[in-house]
Design a protein around this nucleic acid. Structure first.
Lengths: 193, 193
DNA sequence: ACCTGAACACCGTTCAAGT
DNA sequence: ACCTGAACACCGTTCAAGT
């Protein structure tokens, strides 16, 4: 049976979802595919290119033009898509942040967001800067979301109010936290018009 | 000569600054210190704990209370400090994002930011959520700043306007880009009052 | 064009033994 | 308390050889 590119990527996703990015190795992947490490090398010249392919796949669809409507709704749609995409694979945000923005799907997402803001009337440079800022927020957020949280001490007595508040924040529903920070950015963008 | 903790961390920083986080290994560090790998293990039980110590050191001073003044100025001061701290070591943002927020210096920075907003009149939960959002933006931004940029094609003919705009954005002075995105967030926070 | 076998130059971590 | 020597169980990558 011929080893196809998508089979390799599927198996890689399975391993990463199971054990995390740090546990992932090309040799384990080869073993899972019942194939020699050398064979894997033939399909992907090195480990990095395999991870980049994975990141690119993750971004598929994110850059589809969002439905017509007000710019803020369209931007929020894009932001949610990017977050969902990153959450689609264990350690997805860390994976993406280790690759470059020049891959087609990643670039397309940035283009789509920029176009939304240009169409809304923002000058092109401000539009591009804004999209980059939102992207950084999302990547930073999801990296934290996906990082293993240390067990918070069940007993919070002896901890002061501020620490308790911060603990509550980090433990809070990440989707709502995401929404809150995104809202700050959107409100900030509003003042650019 | 006794091997001290700070010597180990200094040598580690030197190696990371020289070759990047991916090239860094405990064995190279041991060699640089003219010491056995096993000896290093005695001082830091595992590689991860060494990296965490490094991240903690990076955050030293960030959480000092900023000079009195309007909340936005104080928050901007903290934001710049965090960015400078992360830029203080090659791959510093990636390093920090691989550790937890519970280390004293990291926690202190979050506490200080939260307190600034509470003192300005924000409810504690909103203050904490806001600080987390800014932190995510900064970490995401500096990760991109510190990632090796692929050589942009010198010849941009044949590339459309949008790509050219995005290329210009990524190539632009990162300090100004940082300021722009931070400004969006600050303006968003303004509307919370 | 695809895959194997075998090697090379590395890793992090453990652990008995020394001082 | 600190450090060495030596090993264990891994890595990514290369490359001649097979089909």
């Amino acid at each position: 049976m011929q080893l196809r590119r998508t089979d390799i990527l599927d198996a890689a996703r399975e391993l990463i979802d199971a054990d995390g990015l740090d546990e992932f190795s090309a040799r384990k992947l080869a073993a899972a595919l019942k194939v020699t490490p050398g064979d894997l090398q033939w399909h992907f010249p090195d480990r990095q290119s395999l991870l980049e392919a994975l990141a690119e796949d993750l971004m598929a669809g994110v850059g589809e033009p969002p439905p017509a409507g007000p710019w803020d709704r369209r931007l929020i749609t894009l932001a949610h898509r990017l977050r969902r995409a990153l959450l689609g694979l264990r350690d997805g945000a860390r994976l993406l942040s280790g690759t470059f923005v020049t891959e087609p799907n990643t670039l397309r997402a940035a283009r789509t967001g920029t176009r939304v803001l240009i169409e809304a009337g923002l000058p092109p440079d401000q539009a591009a800067w804004t999209v980059l800022a939102i992207t950084h927020y999302i990547v930073g957020h999801v990296i934290e979301e996906q990082s293993v949280r240390p067990k918070l001490p069940a007993d919070l007595s002896g901890v002061d109010d501020l620490n308790r508040e911060l603990a509550a924040t980090v433990t809070a529903d990440p989707a709502r936290r995401f929404e809150f920070g995104l809202g700050l950015l959107i409100d900030g963008i509003r003042r650019l018009f």
